[in-house]
Design a protein around this nucleic acid. Sequence first.
DNA 1: CGATTTGACATACGCGCCGTATGCCACTAT
DNA 2: ATAGTGGCATACGGCGCGTATGTCAAATCG
Lengths: 206, 206
Amino acid sequence: MEGTIAGEGTRTTRKEAMAETRRKLMAAGREAFGTIGYAEASMDDLTAAAGLTRGALYHHFGDKKGLLRAVVEEIDREMSERLGAISAAAGSRWQGLVDEQVAYIRMALEPEIQRIMFRDAPAVFGDLSQWPSASACVAALKAHLDALLAEGAIVEIDTEAAARLISGAGGYAATWIATSEDPAETSARAVASFRTLLDGLRARGM
Amino acid sequence: MEGTIAGEGTRTTRKEAMAETRRKLMAAGREAFGTIGYAEASMDDLTAAAGLTRGALYHHFGDKKGLLRAVVEEIDREMSERLGAISAAAGSRWQGLVDEQVAYIRMALEPEIQRIMFRDAPAVFGDLSQWPSASACVAALKAHLDALLAEGAIVEIDTEAAARLISGAGGYAATWIATSEDPAETSARAVASFRTLLDGLRARGM
DNA sequence: CGATTTGACATACGCGCCGTATGCCACTAT
DNA sequence: ATAGTGGCATACGGCGCGTATGTCAAATCG
């Protein structure tokens, strides 16, 4: 029924092979884009590292940008999941917001995320948060702010705009930290100031 | 004495000619980088548009990145001047800070600044605020915050870190606005939220 | 179960663009 | 006026992207 001799388990049906090469290309893309960067990455080298040729790449992703797009979407999903788990584990809603944003900054310190999501992708695609898969991080942050506003826990503010401003500040903080000489110390400073800045949004009546 | 026939005024001494070609190349660079972007800009086309060839470019700037570097430094100086004038014209120190930051966001709406300073330059050079000429905008903002902190007008905070966070939020707001469908309305929302966010830094005792 | 079709991927090609090496000629110095 | 300097143009090599074409294994159908 499957066109194979028996239930050999690791037999190479067409779909499996395709998924495998796709995974190889994505992995090679994350590796190359995350280290030497998008502009410097050669598609010949990248595909060769995956044990393939450019033919496979253009078949699956159309062009060089297509591979970057796929990689970005994958990383975006992973980030959302991790952030969601963190805010869900927090004690209060406010604490969840703070934890999530601090985690966001810390995630942006990971070289792969730093380089691909905060440096190359915006240059190639313009603004990320305007996507179909719209950088779910901003969306989650807005939802958080909406809930807090409804509770009266924060001052009156346009939650979408605020979410974008906060996210922008966090992203910039990450690049500042990543390019500094002492990332650990810089990170501590950035996070502390970030907490102060966020605290300014809490409702004054306490 | 000048190697020319007479005091013709517009006679071509060596230095003048060099300065002129440099200006032409910079102008062509700002035009090309500011519209089609750094990656898509062909140095053949760019130099031809300036009435020159790639020979002149590589003589003056070394390579493609060299021209971008020079363009970025020039724009950075212009931005600092404009922002300094704005904050100097404000009534109070706090008002100067707010005006300056709002102006920063609005400046980032200019296509040339948006594309070159906020999109391409960070991708090519990494973080801008770590430069020799260190994006004077951040430095000016930090100085502002230092003064306000000394006056007791804002809450206790690491002023450099805060300056970078604020600048990051502003920069991101600008790209959000620039890529939105209705920039005017989005701009109003961003600026309003930005004011609220800044307001959270003011000393609670009023 | 064998013939035919499909399509995933490799190979081959052309073009554009960058960076360098070389050449030319106007301006400078003596 | 003559020798020399250097700003800029021209010529060359190489690389990387995107496309067109080929190939062979897996899927489909009688």
